[in-house]
Design a binder for these strands. Structure first.
Length: 636
RNA sequence: GCCGGCUUAGCUCAGUGGUAGAGCAUCGGUUUUGUAAACCGAGGGUCGUCGGUUCGACCCCGACAGCCGGCUCCA
């Protein structure tokens, strides 16, 4: 344990000490340190309130002042069990005791009257906890399993000094100012309307400009890399998703199917309730999943194996992924090995049923647009194509200055049967991902259980302002869908061969990416992305005509500009431009009008002095065209 | 979905069992302004929705919806 973890871990023991003084009935579970502090999970009938938190914190202060030593005591398994029982903590602690492997030593740590089963280590005295704060109460399932009882989790944090604690709390406060939900509202980038629905993003004009610029950017890169652009509809027949496997494997995450009118009339005629309908859909998917699982590793299900009697209901599904549609475009004509790779790209909108408690601004939504593409290639081409995809992701992130990401290679969970396809192919695909990730030149972590149901993937993961991780770009190797859809191409030997598919989305979804991007820039977008690039600020009405003339010139040059026509003093107009995060304000007074110049005020540098408009415009155009990153904002 | 908290004007937020207030924004006027907030005035809310308690509810109780923080989930 690092010294900081030790301090925080001791914090959680002190928390428990104080808690038991105030609530002797509390049953303790576990209290580990975290990246940012510590918590303790407790089972307590009394619902803890914010006021309780203050009382507990005050009691913790007393424990600290009592300067209790932390003392380690080793015990045999039987002794340990006795200690736990004698303290009335058997409800969870006995289970935790049972988790300790046979060969490991069992230890307790005691401070004052409190004693806890604990491997350690701890600071020497409670007085070491000089700077701490309890932060919040939340529900947390015992052992992280939603089938178990939900306990109350008390979060807190601790630092070696009061200054560091204050700095941390200040940082958290600063971060909240960058929250994309706040900035998005302030700058009017997007809205979510409860009548439209939770998790459904409405892109306002300003936000749409950012999205459009990003899409233009990525489209340019796709043209360079030989992609073809396609368009497909937002729904597909249930049949399609039975073949793809989404229907059985992905059921929990999908919107309820749109049942065809005739089908609906038929089952309603049979007296089916809504519940019956759902049950029937469940029966179909359960049967399909069962059939597929039996065959995993030996046989596979292809289109012709779906039996007619399994089509109990006809209807459509809102597409949860774009791949089946793209596959059908690929399959619509015969392919030669000479055609490959075929790369089909689409900004494709998909819909997924996320639990209401999981929705979050733009980063976790129910409808989103992926910058998606599917590559159909020969097995020999997989490595090369993977590199191309990773280089694309790299270009994207570099251009936006987003260097703060981690790479995750998502592999199968060895204990799960939620995957489709042959073991050999999974092995090949996982090896390909691993190899490709190595070429990135950045550290990556292999994580079992993070694969898609059809194949392993390489994900790019970033953190939001409050430290939550979000997956953005993703590249996935897939040997399975080509089999399920019986895709083939003619090889040099004039025999049919199975292509390999690569799924990839450098941004992941436009919604999530923009959410993270808003936080990344704190709303101070580079000029090429800024909804308003130049604010024309006449010093008074007297120079309004000059401003209008320049507005025309800027618009003709493709620059997004606007005039501040408010009847305010200059300072107020400057302030408005700053608050609205416009990268350039051009101050236009009589001097400027006279000399055909502009007084430039940039978000980054403040007052830059005057320059002829004829010099400013090319400089601006170049900055936009090159998609330059802006210098950091000058603090007022 | 689960636990807890929250919901008052476009935004940020006060407020009391006797049907509401500030700042900013908006609109009108005065001012004609030189690098982060000129001045005066006006309009704007069935206090999230629906029920209940009460002579009377924005306030107390309940349900629902939405939001926020966690947990679970994220193929």
């Amino acid at each position: 344990m690092t010294p900081l973890e030790e301090l925080r871990h001791s914090g959680s023991h002190i928390l428990a000490t104080a808690l038991l003084r105030l609530f002797p009935d509390a049953k303790l579970d576990i209290g580990p340190p975290t990246d940012t502090g510590f918590y303790y999970d407790v089972d307590l009938d009394h619902k803890l309130t914010a006021e309780d938190l203050l009382r507990i914190e005050a009691e913790m202060k007393k424990v600290v002042d009592e300067n209790q030593p932390f003392v380690r005591k080793e015990a045999s398994r039987q002794e340990a069990s006795d200690i736990i029982r004698s303290r009335g903590q058997e409800r969870y602690k006995l289970g935790r005791l049972a988790d300790i492997p046979e060969e490991e030593k069992i230890s307790f740590y005691q401070n004052g009257e409190f004693m806890d089963l604990c491997a350690g280590t701890h600071v020497r005295y409670t007085s070491k906890l000089k700077a701490f704060k309890l932060l919040s109460i939340a529900g947390a399932y015992h052992r992280g399993d939603e089938k178990n009882k939900q306990l109350q989790r008390i979060y807190g944090t601790a630092f070696p000094t009061k200054e560091e604690l204050a700095r941390y709390l200040d940082q958290v406060e600063q971060a909240k100012q960058r929250d994309h939900r706040k900035v998005g509202k302030d700058l009017r980038l997007f809205v979510i309307d409860e009548d439209v629905g939770q998790g459904l993003i409405l892109w306002t004009p300003a936000g749409s400009i950012i999205r459009q610029e990003l899409q233009n950017f990525i489209s340019e890169e796709l043209r360079k890399q030989g992609y073809s652009q396609v368009f497909t509809p937002h729904i597909g027949k249930l049949e399609l998703y039975k073949i793809s496997g989404h229907f059985p494997y992905y059921k929990e995450s999908q919107f309820t199917p749109i049942v065809e009118n005739e089908s609906l009339a038929r089952i309603l005629g049979e007296g089916c309730s809504c519940a019956d309908m759902v049950a029937r859909l469940d029966a179909v998917s359960a049967r399909l999943a069962g059939q597929i699982n039996e065959r995993t590793g030996r046989e596979t299900v292809t289109a012709d194996r779906i039996k007619p009697d399994e089509q109990l209901l006809d209807g459509f599904m809102l597409k949860p992924m774009n791949c089946p549609h793209h596959i059908k475009i690929f399959a619509s004509q015969p392919h030669s090995y000479r055609d490959l790779p075929v790369r089909l790209a689409e900004f494709g909108t998909v819909y997924r049923w996320e639990q209401s408690g999981e929705l979050n601004g733009m980063t976790r939504v129910r409808g989103f647009t992926q910058d998606d593409a599917h590559l159909f290639c020969t097995e020999d081409q997989v490595a090369q194509e993977l590199l191309g995809c990773l280089s694309l992701v790299n270009t994207v992130l570099t251009t936006l200055g987003m260097n703060d990401y981690r790479v995750r290679v998502g592999l199968r969970d060895p204990d799960s049967n939620k995957y489709t396809g042959l073991k050999e192919n999974w092995d090949k695909a996982e090896a390909a991902c691993r190899e490709a990730a190595k070429t990135l030149g950045v550290a990556f972590k292999e994580e079992p259980g993070e694969a898609a149901f059809y194949g392993p993937k390489i994900d790019f993961v970033v953190q939001d302002v409050i430290g939550r991780e979000w997956q953005l770009g993703t590249v996935q190797v897939d040997y399975n869908l080509p089999i399920r859809f019986d895709l083939t191409y003619s090889g040099a030997d004039n025999q049919p061969h199975r292509p390999v598919m690569i799924h990839r989305a450098p941004f992941g979804s436009m919604e999530r990416f923009c959410g993270v991007l808003i936080e990344h820039f704190g709303g101070d977008f580079p000029v090429w992305l800024s909804p308003e690039q130049v604010r024309l600020v006449p010093v008074s009405e007297k120079t309004l005509d000059y401003a209008r003339e320049l507005l025309g010139a800027l618009k003709a040059a493709g620059v997004r500009a606007a005039i501040d026509e408010h009847n305010d003093k200059l300072g107020a107009k400057i302030r408005r431009s700053e608050v609205e995060k416009v990268p350039y304000a051009l101050i236009l007074g009589p001097k400027e009008a006279e000399s055909r110049s502009v007084s430039i005020r940039s978000r980054a540098k403040g007052d830059e002095g005057s320059a002829p408009f004829e010099q400013f415009l090319p400089r601006l155009s170049q900055e936009i065209r090159s998609r330059a990153l802006s210098e950091k904002r000058k603090q007022p």
